[in-house]
Amino acid sequence: MATGGRRGAAAAPLLVAVAALLLGAAGHLYPGEVCPGMDIRNNLTRLHELENCSVIEGHLQILLMFKTRPEDFRDLSFPKLIMITDYLLLFRVYGLESLKDLFPNLTVIRGSRLFFNYALVIFEMVHLKELGLYNLMNITRGSVRIEKNNELCYLATIDWSRILDSVEDNYIVLNKDDNEECGDICPGTAKGKTNCPATVINGQFVERCWTHSHCQKVCPTICKSHGCTAEGLCCHSECLGNCSQPDDPTKCVACRNFYLDGRCVETCPPPYYHFQDWRCVNFSFCQDLHHKCKNSRRQGCHQYVIHNNKCIPECPSGYTMNSSNLLCTPCLGPCPKVCHLLEGEKTIDSVTSAQELRGCTVINGSLIINIRGGNNLAAELEANLGLIEEISGYLKIRRSYALVSLSFFRKLRLIRGETLEIGNYSFYALDNQNLRQLWDWSKHNLTITQGKLFFHYNPKLCLSEIHKMEEVSGTKGRQERNDIALKTNGDQASCENELLKFSYIRTSFDKI
């Protein structure tokens, strides 16, 4: 039985969820670079991206490699990797027998973001014989899940209580170790020597080791999670996991709180800001991140802002960003909400898709409305799209047979046209069989910064309504002859009103 693990408890099935942008060198404390989270699957090609990484700022997932063999891993080693800020997950990587050479110096898994409450997941690794993470000293947050690894031993010899604050939620089941077939031998045991430290858990006094050649490092209890030197002297209180010299914040392997210019500090002093819960960055760093993602459509890219001495992905609820200094300031009234469309555009074809934009005031991208039916549609669209004030790209209304009016965009005031449909149009209306009105132009103002209007096959939309939009939106004169079809717009509506004058002759039985 794995020490510190839980057996036999019912657990939810383990679901495996399925960018080499360097964020800056980590400095003297770390020998390499800070790398983003990685999802490495199918083959070993991307694994080489770990070569210079000291910190993975995010998670590391290595999974679904069915053609790899043990010899493929023999020359692979990433000794610079010290810390993973989120979680480490391995799933069905064939041929991998140990992690001792792959990650010989991995010391800390912070667990800032977890995989279903777990910071370390080893699942269905069919050839893994031992973990071998002999320098792993601290899992700051989260638990361990090690399950269905039929060859995995050296679990009962690990004292997880020396690595985690609590072992109650560890789930370590259905491994070879369960069948008591392992016969784990710690260093020196074969020669009758006791080389590794022994600890007591559940009444068992057991030597602690990761492999037959690597003991588990056990520091004096007084050192807590700070770690200790090879001689057993406690590291500085700002260290986490390990250090090369005692009581020196510049000799830590990793930091308990924050890293700044080669030393570990309790908090980031001005003019620095907390970033990702582990390091200090200056304003320029946060500003660069903001600008890199301002026009990016890459998933996970955030326009970072500053709030409460932190550089964070977005302002919290009730705050909006001051564009001059990136500071989050309290909103006066309802907060603006910028919604970034991942692929640059979004099609609204149902109430469900409209709900995804609920509360958005600025759309960074283009909207395509293609709704053919739905219950209580006008009210639903207004509830979900009615706060949109600005669209950076274009607005396209296409084959939306259920629409009679666009009044559900009740606050839309600006279409920038930074991206144009077919390279020309910022407003595009095609084949809307029941569209009769755009907006009530006596109450609604709309500016279209650039781009043209396109109207074709809107049989109940009168040309007068379209011409009014040209005047109000500032697009009059931009359109070419064929942009607004004269014969297919309003051709099934009563669009022309003329005053009919009647004269009559009164007659009676005795007068003409």
Rank of each mutant, 00 (worst) to 15 (best):
V265S: 04
L64P: 15
P70W: 06
N179P: 05
D72V: 15
R141A: 03
G232S: 11
D261E: 13
L102V: 12
P271D: 02
P269H: 11
R298M: 07
P313Q: 12
I122Q: 00
D248T: 02
P31S: 05
V281L: 04
H307R: 06
S237T: 09
E314F: 01
L114V: 08
I201T: 03
G227K: 02
V305T: 06
D72R: 01
G300C: 06
I201M: 14
C335Q: 04
N175S: 10
P270T: 05
K129P: 00
E147R: 01
C311Y: 04
W278P: 00
Y304R: 04
T199L: 11
T140F: 06
D277L: 12
R41W: 10
P197Q: 14
R113W: 13
H226N: 10
V281M: 02
P220D: 07
N195T: 07
S112M: 11
V55I: 14
G318T: 03
P313T: 09
D159K: 05
R46P: 04
N179G: 14
T45E: 01
R256C: 01
G333L: 07
T320N: 11
D159V: 08
D72F: 04
C53N: 00
L88E: 00
G132T: 01
P316G: 01
C215S: 06
A119Y: 00
V167H: 05
I84L: 03
V265P: 01
L332C: 03
L76M: 09
N135L: 02
H28G: 02
R141M: 04
C315T: 01
A190T: 12
Q303E: 10
S112R: 12
L240V: 07
D247I: 15
H307W: 11
T85I: 06
V265G: 01
T85K: 04
F285I: 05
C219T: 02
Q204A: 05
E130N: 12
G203N: 10
M65S: 08
Q245W: 03
T45F: 06
T68A: 10
C219H: 04
T320S: 05
H28L: 13
G142P: 00
Y134V: 15
C223A: 01
N257A: 07
V281S: 01
D261S: 06
L81C: 01
E181H: 03
L128R: 01
S237M: 06
C328A: 01
F66K: 05
F275S: 03
M38I: 13
V93F: 07
K292C: 06
L128F: 12
D169M: 15
L89H: 02
N282I: 15
K310H: 05
T229I: 08
S77A: 02
T189Q: 12
E49L: 11
E168M: 13
I122E: 00
I185A: 15
G32W: 12
R69M: 13
Y273H: 09
V305W: 07
L99T: 07
R69F: 12
H214C: 11
C243G: 00
T199R: 06
R279L: 09
I222F: 15
N242H: 07
P79D: 10
G132N: 05
L64Y: 03
H307M: 06
I82N: 08
L63T: 08
C228L: 02
D177Q: 11
N42C: 13
L50Y: 06
E238C: 03
I306S: 03
Y30C: 12
K80W: 07
N117Q: 08
N295Q: 09
M321T: 09
